[in-house]
Design a protein around this nucleic acid. Structure first.
Lengths: 147, 147
DNA sequence: GGAAAACTCCCCACTTTTCCCCACTTTCCT
DNA sequence: AGGAAAGTGGGGAAAAGTGGGGAGTTTTCC
């Protein structure tokens, strides 16, 4: 499965298209077939899962019981924002309006590699996000990983 | 089996027809033969199962114990609203009056992909539904899917 | 029983959106 | 410095969405 890292800012053209950095494109496995599933991020950004990685998530959701009210709601909330997009001949994807609105993306986008997914941020929204984070990296690492 | 995702609003014409999004149409397996079974949703919406998926549901219901009063009632309630519809040449289905009345659908419909089924909502009814949901997505995910 | 109304299922026609392709500019690498 | 790869922009064909006409069937109601 692909692992993404790095970050770069790209322009979003009038048609809502953004280039995916060449480095990340080459990290894609053939199984992903140049296709991503975009969803709302937990933060104010768009998550882009390569097709093969998304498949795994989807399998988890498909096993939830439809007869459970909360499970139905969860599946609805997640899947309704999910949208499949493919790379065009120039290595770009086009961002659905609903998602770019949610993430507040205008004519620039910050693309961040985050392990099994790529995150697409509005540059200012990402700045704001950073400001909100008070804990320094060292402390964070200890809290999360130091047992 | 087809897996549906995404969401889009479509108009319902004077004849009660709605387009099924092209993305969802292409997710249909050949076995579904462009046919859906519509039923009352558990929420105030219409559920549309592709023919092959509906078959599975039907099998589940048929295995319920006929000697159980509640089971008999459940099956009755579900089947009495079930209606089979097919895509026309333009990729639309027509909504039976009884079901669109139940869902409160007027001249616009919100189509949501929810795994093995498609949901058809009145846009305002869906807004209301969202208002009623209090739990945020992260909490919900934890409750439903475990740690 | 028969006419009128309603509904279904074909069409066809028009508008809008999407996506595919080509071309130009910029950056990177040797 | 020069060539290749990466990034950016736009035009045009094809597909998707929308609306309506009209034949054939069913339902309704007098």
């Amino acid at each position: 499965m692909a692992r993404f890292k790095g970050q770069a800012a790209y322009s979003v053209d009038a048609k809502g298209r953004v280039a995916i950095p060449a480095k990340m494109r080459s990290a894609l496995t053939p199984e992903a077939q140049g296709t991503f599933t975009l969803t709302k991020g937990f933060e104010k950004c768009i998550y882009a899962y390569p097709q093969d990685g998304w498949k795994v998530k989807e399998d988890e959701y498909s096993e939830l019981n439809v007869n459970n009210r909360k499970a139905r709601h969860l599946v609805r909330m997640i899947l309704m924002w999910a949208e499949e997009v493919s790379l065009d001949g120039q290595g770009r994807i086009s961002l659905p309006r609903s998602l770019s609105d949610y993430a507040g993306i205008g004519d620039r986008a910050l693309i961040i590699g985050a392990m099994d997914r790529i995150e697409i941020w509005d540059p200012e929204a990402f700045e704001d996000y950073l400001q909100e984070q008070t804990t320094d990296q060292e402390t964070l690492a200890e809290e999360v990983m130091g047992s």
